[in-house]
């Protein structure tokens, strides 16, 4: 029975996630409280946005419902990535306390074990809060829906999640070299999420170029959301790029895989 590493990894991931969910259920009250807390904490930045719109009708030329669309898509993507891959950011700690070694002697890919490690269902708090905002945004927007746009929305959320997930894996690869550097990847994931919640029009052009061509966060939601809202992007990029999210996501995952491999190889040659 020879399975491909991908199948093995996925199977192990599901198994380990199942174990963590059952572990969590040993403390039900605590679980319920942390889901609620997660929901509220992630909701606070939306409250901040609402306070901004208390003082103005438009921000960067965008109305509140349009910003809510940006907020909902970015946050849902980040929430999904955090739910499924977020634990990879604990890698540095595992390297420091030596428990990574126990994962390396098992016959399943290490990344699957690291991603499933301490799987926290409470992170559903962010996902549900984001979806709530998204639903509200969609119900208050007047979009000229077409089948393409209707399909673009879920595809955007999923490929956005893949891009964020890739950043998390690449960050974990970096933590093999610098175990205390978990915050660096937070800049790209949580920082990126904060940025993508606002319209691209308010940021400096160079910053927008940076998150389009260097760290391709713009594909998480900006470009496709602008298409849904029938708006021009501030860089005047060709229109087909609005649909490039899935391709960019695949590319990011590929590069993240390389970064992870390089990190793991360096760990196995240095032992840190």
């Amino acid at each position: 029975m020879v399975e491909s590493p991908v199948v093995q990894g996925l199977r192990a991931y599901v198994l380990i996630v199942g174990m963590w969910i059952r572990s969590t259920m040993a403390y039900r009250t605590s679980f319920a409280l942390t889901v609620l807390g997660n929901f509220l904490v992630t909701g606070l930045d939306f409250v901040a946005i609402m306070i901004m719109f208390w003082h103005t009708d438009v921000l960067g030329g965008f109305a509140v419902a349009e910003v809510a669309l940006l907020y909902g898509t970015a946050s849902a993507s980040l929430g999904l990535a955090d739910l499924t891959m977020g634990s990879a950011s604990r890698l540095g700690r595992r390297v420091r306390d030596g428990t990574l070694d126990t994962l390396l002697v098992r016959p399943v890919p290490v990344i699957a074990q690291v991603a499933a490690d301490r799987f926290a269902l409470r992170r559903l708090g962010r996902v549900s809060q984001a979806l709530l905002v998204l639903v509200w945004a969609l119900s208050s927007l007047e979009v000229a829906w077409t089948p393409v746009k209707a399909l673009l929305l879920p595809v955007t959320v999923l490929s956005g999640a893949a891009i964020f997930g890739a950043l998390m894996v690449a960050g974990a690869g970096f933590q093999f070299l610098a175990q205390d550097a978990a915050e660096v990847q937070n800049s790209f994931t949580y920082g990126g999420n904060t940025m993508l919640q606002y319209p691209p029009t308010i940021f400096a052009k160079d910053l927008v170029r940076g998150v389009t061509f260097i760290v391709p966060l713009a594909f998480v939601n900006w470009l496709p959301a602008l298409r849904i809202l029938d708006r021009q992007d501030p860089l005047g990029l060709p229109g087909w790029l609005d649909f490039a999210g899935p391709v960019v996501a695949v590319g990011c995952c590929f590069l993240a895989g390389l970064a992870w491999r390089a990190g793991l190889r360096s760990y196995r040659s240095t032992g840190s």
Binding site: A12, I16, M19, R22, S23, A26, P107
Partner: peptide, 17 residues
């Protein structure tokens, strides 16, 4: 697995291997 019965850890080993 810290919070689960010993038996569950073994069941996981069975499926992983």
């Amino acid at each position: 697995w810290w919070d689960l019965p010993l038996r569950d850890s073994y069941a996981l080993v069975r499926r992983i291997y």
